[in-house]
């Protein structure tokens, strides 16, 4: 569980740092008609939905533990 958490954090950090790098360097982000802005937007939506799924997963795990303890 702990390992998975560290792994997830690493993945999130990796994606986020990518995003920040893309938005902080205007020449790269504005190249090819600003297509990388679209890429960053899609990545942001992806991360957002995955983060929400992780939140739901943890909520469900808590419920399962409650049932098992009764």
């Amino acid at each position: 569980m702990k390992k998975a958490k560290i792994f997830l954090q690493f993945i999130l950090f990796f994606f986020c740092s990518n995003l920040i790098a893309q938005t902080e360097n205007p020449d790269f982000a504005r190249s090819i008609g600003k297509i990388y802005v679209v890429v960053a937007v899609i990545v942001a939506i992806f991360i957002g939905i995955i983060a929400f799924l992780i939140y739901l997963d943890r909520k469900l795990t808590k419920l399962e533990n409650q049932i098992n303890n009764k």
Partner: peptide, 20 residues
Amino acid sequence: TLFGMLGIITGSIWAKDTWG
């Protein structure tokens, strides 16, 4: 609300490269 927040974040990313 989740979709709204994603909307604000994606808009923000676009604003950074368009409005600075």
